[in-house]
Structures are given as C-alpha cells and as structure tokens.
Design a protein around this nucleic acid. Structure first.
Lengths: 341, 341
DNA sequence: GCAAATAACCAAACCGTTTTCAATTTTAGA
DNA sequence: TCTAAAATTGAAAACGGTTTGGTTATTTGC
C-alpha cells in the first residue's frame, strides 16, 4: 500500500500522514493516534527506498566481512543486533572478496559512493590503515573497532590488549616462569602488535629477553595452537608457560601439552584471551583456563551505540574508548616447576 | 556526483549514460566504453537508493539473526558472502529481539512491507513454521535453510539429518554398542526432529528400544555437552556411545568422558555432527572425532545461489535440495567393550 | 470584538535514478 | 540516389515518499 492510497483511506493528505507517522509536532494528538491505528490496521509502512532516497539516510550500518569467517564475528554482530533491534537501523554485511589491496579500497569507495550505508565499522585495523584514511577523505562516518596509529581523526573502541597481555605475562613471571611462549594473532593488525608489545614489555621489565623461537602468529585456530605449542615444546629448551591469542588457540595448546604427556597447570601454564563465547567457556575447560577476558558481544553492542551517536552528530574526536581487560585466574596457571631437562 | 552532472561531463544524456552503465544493448560499444572509462575516472556510481526506488529491487537478501548468536551463523554468512561478492547484492542482517512469538511475525511483516530486501532466508524452521506461511502469503520470495512439513509451496535446502544420524547410530550398533546416548539440538526445529527420528529408526531396526534416559536436547554448547554426557555416564546403566549434535557438544562429551577416567574410542565411542569450521576440526581432536560432516559454508554459498535463481524467476517448487551427509570414521569410535559394571 | 498569533492541515516540488516513447542518425536494400 | 529499416540517442514521466511554503481554522491578547 502506498502513502497516497493510505492517506485517502484515512481521509488526510499525504503530508499530514507522513508527519503523523514520523512524529512531527505540528500534528494533533488525535490525528496522530488515528493515523497510527489505521497504519497498524491496514498494514501500511513506508517504502524504505523512497524514504532513503528523499532523506538521504540509508538506515543501515555497514560491516565488511572478510573471507576468513571468524568465529568472533557472530558474537560481535549479535551484540550489534542487540542494540539495533529497537532502532530503525539494520546491519549490512558487505562481502569482501580477497584481502587484495586495491580491490579492498575500491570496495570501500564504491560502498561510500553508492550511499548504501550511513556509517561503516572497520575491524582489525592496521597501525597505518588506508581504509581509515580513505573513509575520512570521503567523509563517511565510521567507527574503528580496534586501533590505528594513523594520523587522521577517527572514532574508535578498543580493548587494552597491551595491558592485558602485559599483565598476563607478568603474572606468569611472578609464578616463576622464565620461558614463556606467545601465540599471537595474524601479524599486521594493531591488536597483534599491541599484544606483542605487552608481552615484550612484561618480559623486559623483569630482565628477560624475548625469545623469537617462542613467538608465533597466525589465525586463531585450534590447529595452529596445537602446531605451534607442540613445536615449541619439542625444542631443546621448551617453554613452561603459554600466552595464547584465543580460546581456539588454547584448545590446541591444551591438546599439544596433553599429547606430550604433560599436565596443564602443573607442567605447563596457559593463559589465553577469551572473547566470551556462549558455546565455549574458559571456566569449563579441564583444567579451567586462566584468561584475559573481554566480551566481544558487549563490544558489538557498544560499537552500535557509538555509531548511532556518531550519526546523531557527536564528533568522532570525542569517541575513543579503551576498555580494560580482566584477568581471571583459574587452574591452568601454576608455579613454574624446575625444568625436567 | 549525480547522474545529471556526470552525463553532462561525458557529453551525453542521462538516459544514454544510464543505459551504458547497466549494459543495455541499444548503446554503441564506443559510447559504452567512453562512459565506463569516465565513470571510473570521475568516480561516479549511481545512488543505490534511487535505483532501488525506481526498479523496485532492494539489492539485498535478508537474514534474520536470532539472539543466540550461534557459531554456525558466521560460517553460513561467509559462504553466502562468497557467492554474493561478485553480485550486486548484499546481505542484510535483521536483528531479532526475543523469540517472542507475535513480535517475530510482526518483524517479518514489517520487513516485507518496507521492501528492504528482495528475498529472505529462513533458518531452523519448525515442522509447522508460521514464518513460511506468512512469507508465502505476503508474496515475498524466500528460501528455507532446513525443512518444514508445512503445506505451503516453498524453496528449501537441507542436509539429510535423518539419514546421517541413522547411519551414524547404525554404525555404532554395528560396533556392538547397545546403550547409545543422543545429545540433540534444541527441540522444536525440524532438524532436531529428523535427527531424533534417525536415531530411533536405527535403534529400532536393530530391535533396541530408545531409552529416554539417554536422550537430551539443548543448545550446542560445550557446557551442555559436558553436563548431559556426565549425567548419562553416572547413571546405573551408562551408555557406551554418544551421538552428539555439534562440535561444541562433542568437546563437552570428551571432557565428561575424560573426567571420569575413561577413554574415548575405547571405553566410550563418540560421533558428532561437524559443520566444518576452519578453527576447530574433527581431525585434530584427540582422539580424532568420527563425524557426520556437511559444510555449513557450502550451504551458505548454495543458498545464496538458489536465492538468486529464485529472484531471476525460477519457481520455488523446483528448488528442493537435500544434501547427503558424509560419515567420516576416525578414532573416537571403536567396538563396544563389555560393561564394567 | 478585532488583530495577531498559533495550530492544524495541504499542494506541489523534489530526491536521483530508470524507462517509455519519440526523434534522429546510420546502414542496408533496390 | 532514395527509402525503409535498424541503430543510437534524448526528453520527460514515473518510482513513493518528505519537506517547503503556504492556506485555512482556532485561540489569544488587549
């Protein structure tokens, strides 16, 4: 049903009906109620494309989805959804083909130019992220989930990866560990650098030299967790503790440790970063997993919130949130034992 | 930049430019090339909202996201993305508030009425799913991922859950297992019923009466896998084998078995359903997990494909795909051992 | 009681495309 | 060379709303 038709049914002009539905003040309460009732009864709702064309608002927030299809993604989106459900805003998932460089820039450019979205959320930025420069240049509102060192004003929300990993590592050192391995996320993204930096700082502040032989990075998979952990543990001078980048990585590490007949929490300590998934909890692992914890879902919710603020005029310069990360100690960490070698 | 302006720059009418860009035949190759070049150079691309209004096509496929934020979701979406990246179609994620009944119907109704999407993908349908009836009634093209027994014509793609679980269960029986437990997905959805039915049929065809004490259902989480498995194993007459609904469930089952000092594949056999995740593979579990396997990502890709076919006029009645499910035997299954009780 | 202010409503212009219908140019046929 | 047909191009009318700038009752102030 179209506005014109609907307006005729209600016995008002399209103008008044439109205003009544959008909550403009210059329409009487009686009329508004009548219109609202009729809309519900006749099932009228405005053609969203016409509204968008006229108002210039797209009513959607864009999220570019990389090919990896990371498991974090669903949680983040669920969080966004939680915030946006009441809003008239939906989430547009933009498929990205390859992490091919030019293509990606082109994709963002087209995305902006086509006016499909009012704002964009950029994930896993790099320290000098061209996407940020581009979006800024094109004047598209955007929020960075993560951080970038780029010298362009932008809104961001990030967790304090450096502090988290530094604290986790320090704790392991306090427990007496000296050979500590680090399985990081894919290198390139700022968060991986921050974690790396937190790791190094903790070691160095205790006079321990980071050993490149005990540091690896890659996708957050069970498989890589296993492989790296296993290869580290088979070295002549194996680590007694692990800092793992994700829950999946931790699963792999657990497996590797077990496969060598060692015991987590006794022979080898593990701390992982936990994004808080409903389907796999650190508490339930055996032994329960000590973790730096920050809810990915909460981040999604807050990011959606901040984007809405951005769209209602708040300056990106005011929007910088650095979330502290909890360290939850459980059974996977324990005092270092004298080396068995 | 707007069409009018752009057309002026190129020295052509908006009409011709529009045609050139949309690939209509009645424009000369020379002109088309010139327009394309200019568009690339000046960075013109049509305002998507105007196009949508005019053509009536939304250029988006809707996917309603439940609150649960399941881990399957990301894989499915990544699969869709793979197919849609070349297309001019994007994915609209519609947040759903509560699984509240009326609200959900209202949501679908508004979604259709607002013309935001050209088609909708319905997940985890129930045998008599009202969403299907509603979408059919409203004339919105849709594809069901899963199956429904409802008497309304509709396109669907599903995996053969019944056959898969039947085969898995039969295999366990062939191995000599008689006390077999089943940890299913949340009851209500058709797939859970199908799995239940496959399970029962396998048992009954071997003259075994299904024991309700060994059957549970709930979300696909590690935690529930553990709890159910543990409680089953502590019964007086414990199962010697498990059929688990998901990889996460399997993790929980493994944990439960270990926690009781038993060994997977020897004391207790496990077969789970594996949707094939890049970050957690059945092959890598210890011991490696026997599984019924079907790629969720591939399903996403194919669903996107089918929806596109639907949109280009193919009849929903022709679109029924039932995918067979592989059974991959690994180390988690072995012959039943004489009960220790 | 009357001018001025206010409230409530409406006609028409406009958002940026696509597409119908018509005009013009080019090519083919005789 | 001339005409009919085919190939290109354009002008203008939609698409379905919102919003500007009135217009017409209804109050308010003095």
């Amino acid at each position: 049903m179209k506005l014109k038709e609907f307006a005729k049914q209600v016995g008002l002009s399209p103008t008044t009906v439109s205003r009544a539905l959008s909550g403009y003040p210059e329409v009487s309460e009686t009329t508004r109620a009548r219109v609202a009732e009729a809309a519900a009864r006749l099932g009228y709702s405005p053609n969203v494309n016409a509204v968008r064309l006229k108002t210039g608002r797209a009513g959607a927030i864009g999220v570019v989805m990389g090919r990896a299809g990371e498991f974090h993604f669903a949680e983040f989106m669920a969080g966004m959804a939680e915030r946006l459900v009441a809003e008239e805003t939906d989430i547009l998932v933009i498929p990205m083909a390859d992490p091919n460089h030019e293509d990606e820039m082109q994709l963002y450019r087209r995305l902006v130019e086509s006016r499909r979205v009012d704002a964009i959320i950029v994930h896993s930025p790099k320290p000098n992220d061209e996407r940020i420069a581009l979006l800024h240049e094109l004047g598209m509102p955007f929020l960075v989930h993560g951080r970038s060192a780029i010298d362009v004003p932008h809104a961001w929300l990030d967790i304090d990866n450096e502090a988290a990993i530094k604290r986790a590592t320090s704790h392991l050192i306090d427990l007496g560990h000296r050979r500590i391995a680090m399985i990081n996320g894919r290198s390139g993204a700022t968060y991986a650098l921050h974690r790396d930096s937190g790791f190094r700082k903790a070691l160095q502040s205790h006079g321990i030299e980071p050993d490149p032989q005990l540091m690896a990075s890659g996708n957050f998979t069970d498989e890589l967790g296993f492989r790296f952990a296993r290869s580290f543990l088979e070295q002549p001078n194996p680590p007694t503790a692990f800092v793992a980048g994700s829950m999946m990585t931790a699963l792999g590490v657990y497996r590797a440790v077990r496969s060598l007949g060692m015991q987590i929490g006794r022979d080898v300590s593990v701390i992982a970063h936990d994004d808080v998934f409903p389907y796999l909890t650190a508490d339930n692992m055996v032994p329960s997993l000590s973790a730096t914890r920050s809810s990915m879902r909460a981040a999604g919710t807050r990011c959606a919130d901040l984007v809405l603020q951005l769209l209602s005029g708040r300056s990106p310069l005011e929007i910088h949130e650095l979330w502290p990360v909890e360290l939850i100690l459980r059974e996977s960490t324990g005092p270092a034992r004298p080396s068995r070698s």
